[in-house]
């Protein structure tokens, strides 16, 4: 064996990189990972999320089908209160009136860490180049359905039109049915992530989230939020408070 040196250049470089990584990692982790609230299940969720982001090729396309593959599609309300509470926003007079006028008064606010905060009408969104995709909706409950979605790529609105600021990391969606949830930038800028206003060739119907819902094809159905009204770009994850999904025990990341 030739003389083994304790300090080789390669060792130095590797040790240095590891040390820097060790120092930087906790900060990176805190900024990019959803909160765990000290709960072991949330830690497991984060392990899965980190593994997906580390091991999976970034922004690969979910399978797209032919229009002939479209199937029956159940509509469920994420918020069961819709079924029991007559004062639920989706049952309100305001929403009904808005629906009757083709959502002429509906506006989508895009704000937060964007260079040009904007308000879009439905017609504004339809002026963007449209993308139509036939994809499978996979519900955490265990069922699936194939539908055709038409809308504008969220990345197009955020990156090209509103202009993301460098600190942007998460995109939070505030929905008319009081639902709040967020996705990371990788999924937000995914080419198949749409602000969808059309389904199966027609306008998006009320049970499916009219006038505009999100489509996130790389995650479970509950991340494809309905009735979107406000999109907020943030640098830190907004857990949505006590109405938020994570605080109610659901995994923030639902790619599995």
């Amino acid at each position: 064996m030739k003389g083994r040196r304790l300090l080789t250049r390669r060792n130095l470089l590797l040790t240095g990189a590891a040390a820097a990584g060790g120092l930087l990692l906790p900060g990176w982790w805190r900024r990019n990972m959803p909160p765990t609230y000290g709960h072991i299940l949330r830690m497991g969720d984060n392990l899965t999320y980190a593994a997906h982001r580390l091991l999976l090729p970034g922004q690969s396309m979910a399978r797209e089908y032919n229009p002939g593959d479209i199937t029956a599609f159940p509509a469920i309300f994420l918020d069961d209160r819709f079924l029991t509470d007559p004062s639920h926003p989706m049952r309100s007079e305001a929403y009904r009136r808005s629906h009757a006028t083709g959502f002429a008064d509906w506006r989508l606010k895009v704000e937060g860490l964007v260079a040009r905060p904007k308000t879009y009408s439905l017609a504004d969104l339809k002026r963007f180049p449209a993308r139509t995709q036939v994809t499978r909706h996979t519900c955490e409950e265990g069922w699936s359905a194939i539908g055709e979605w038409t809308g504008v790529q969220l990345g197009r609105v955020l990156e090209v039109d509103a202009g993301l600021l460098p600190e942007a990391r998460f995109v939070t969606f505030h929905c008319n049915d009081n639902y709040v949830d967020s996705i990371d930038l990788l999924d937000a800028l995914h080419p198949q992530t749409l602000l969808a206003y059309g389904m199966n060739g027609g306008d998006l119907s009320v049970p499916h989230g009219a006038p505009v819902r999100l489509r996130v094809e790389t995650q479970m159905g509950y991340k494809s939020m309905k009735y979107i009204e406000r999109v907020v770009v943030t640098s830190e994850l907004d857990d949505g408070g006590k109405d938020g999904n994570i605080q109610n025990g659901w995994s923030w990341y639902a790619g599995i």
Partner: peptide, 19 residues
């Protein structure tokens, strides 16, 4: 909620009313 616009007769949609 009846057949969808384009695929009349085939795929249907329905809303769940059961918690």
């Amino acid at each position: 909620t009846g057949p969808f616009a384009r695929n009349g007769g085939g795929p249907v949609g329905a809303t769940r009313t059961f918690v």
